[in-house]
C-alpha cells in the first residue's frame, strides 16, 4: 500500500526523465485520449440519469407518502353526513395532521383534464373526497380502515401505496441501471486503456530491453508508461466531462409539465460530479496501466 501511494505520488509529481525514455507514440496516445473522453461523456449522462431518477423517486415517495385520500360513495342525501362522520373519525385519529373535504370546485378542477371545465359535479353521483395529511409518524392504516368501516360504511381509505410503490420501484431500478451503466463504462475504460498500454509496451519492447540492460528496475520502466497513460486518460476524461456538461446545459430546463426527461441534469453541488468522473477515470487508468506494465515486464523477463 505504501509503495502504491509512493508510486501515485511519484506519478503526480512526475518523473520527466523516466517518461522521456519512452518515445511518444501517436496512435496509442490518441486512442487513450479518445476512449477516456468518450467514456467520460457517457458516464456523465449515465450519472445524470441516475441522479434524475433518484430525485424523481424521492419526490414521488415524499409527495405521495405524506397524504392519503378517503373516498365516500353514498347517495346524495347521505353524502354530507358521511363526510362529516369521516372527518370526526379523522380528528380523533393519532397520526393525522389535518383532514379536509375537497370542495366542488376542487373536484371539478381535478376532473377537468378528462371531462372539461363545465362538468356539473353537483348533479352527478361523483364520490366525495377527503384529503388527509399525515404527521411524520403517520397513522395506523389498518386501524383507521376498521374505524371507517364501522362508522362510515361508504368510505374507502386510499393511502396511495398501490400507486406509489410501483413508481418508486421503477425509479429505484432505473437508478440502479444508471449506476450499473457507470460501473460498466468505467470497467470498459480500464479494459481499453489496458489494451492500449499493452500495445504501447509491445511496441516498445526494444526500449524496455535497453532500459533493462542499463539497470532500470521494473518500477522505473512501469512509471514511464503509467504516468503517460494516466495523464492522457485524465486529459481525455476532462474533455469528455466538459463536453457532456455543456450538452446537459443545452437540455431544456426542468418544469412541472416536462416530467422526467426535462429533469435530466445536475443541480447545485451535483455539478461537482463532473470533476469526480475524470479523477475516477484517471485512477482507473493508473491501476490498469500499472497492472498491464508490471505483467508485461514480468512476461518479458
Amino acid at each position: 500500500m505504501k509503495r502504491l501511494i509512493s508510486e501515485a505520488t511519484g506519478m503526480v509529481i512526475g518523473d520527466p526523465e523516466a517518461e522521456r525514455s519512452v518515445p511518444p507514440t501517436g496512435f496509442t496516445a490518441r486512442l487513450t485520449v479518445f476512449t477516456a473522453a468518450a467514456m467520460a461523456f457517457l458516464s456523465v449522462f449515465a450519472l445524470a440519469l441516475s441522479l434524475a431518477t433518484d430525485r424523481l423517486a424521492d419526490q414521488w415517495a415524499s409527495e405521495l407518502a405524506q397524504t392519503s385520500t378517503i373516498r365516500i360513495s353514498a347517495p346524495a342525501e347521505q353524502a354530507e353526513a358521511q363526510v362529516a362522520a369521516a372527518l370526526r373519525v379523522l380528528e380523533t385519529t393519532p397520526g393525522v395532521a389535518s383532514a379536509r373535504a375537497l370542495t366542488d370546485a376542487e373536484q371539478r378542477e381535478l376532473l377537468a383534464p378528462w371531462f372539461g371545465p363545465d362538468l356539473p359535479v353537483d348533479r352527478l353521483p361523483i364520490p366525495r373526497l377527503i384529503e388527509v395529511v399525515e404527521t411524520s409518524d403517520g397513522f395506523d392504516t389498518t386501524g383507521l380502515r376498521a374505524r371507517l368501516q364501522a362508522e362510515v360504511p361508504g368510505a374507502i381509505l386510499d393511502d396511495h401505496t398501490r400507486w406509489r410503490e410501483p413508481l418508486v420501484d421503477a425509479a429505484s431500478r432505473l437508478r440502479l441501471l444508471g449506476w450499473i451503466a457507470i460501473a460498466l463504462i468505467i470497467g470498459a475504460t480500464g479494459t481499453m486503456i489496458t489494451l492500449a498500454a499493452q500495445s504501447a509496451l509491445a511496441a516498445n519492447a526494444q526500449v524496455i530491453r535497453v532500459m533493462r540492460l542499463v539497470g532500470a528496475e521494473d518500477g522505473y520502466i512501469a512509471r514511464a508508461f503509467v504516468r503517460r497513460f494516466t495523464l492522457r486518460a485524465l486529459a481525455g476524461a476532462l474533455i469528455g466531462a466538459i463536453l457532456a456538461g455543456v450538452a446537459i446545459l443545452t437540455l431544456p430546463s426542468a418544469d412541472t409539465t416536462g416530467g422526467f426527461l426535462t429533469g435530466l441534469g445536475f443541480r447545485g453541488i451535483e455539478w461537482l460530479w463532473l470533476l469526480a468522473i475524470p479523477v475516477l477515470i484517471g485512477v482507473v487508468a493508473f491501476f490498469a496501466t500499472r497492472a498491464a506494465a508490471l505483467r508485461v515486464l514480468r512476461e518479458q523477463s
Binding site: 523516466a18 525514455s21 518515445p23 535497453v210 542499463v214 539497470g215 528496475e217 522505473y220
Partner: peptide, 17 residues
C-alpha cells in the same frame, strides 16, 4: 540505443535510471 534520444542522453541512460 534509444533512437529518439541524443547520444548524450543515451550514454547517460544508466545514470538516469
Amino acid at each position: 540505443f534509444l533512437d529518439h534520444l541524443t547520444m548524450r542522453d543515451n550514454v547517460a541512460l544508466p545514470l538516469t535510471v
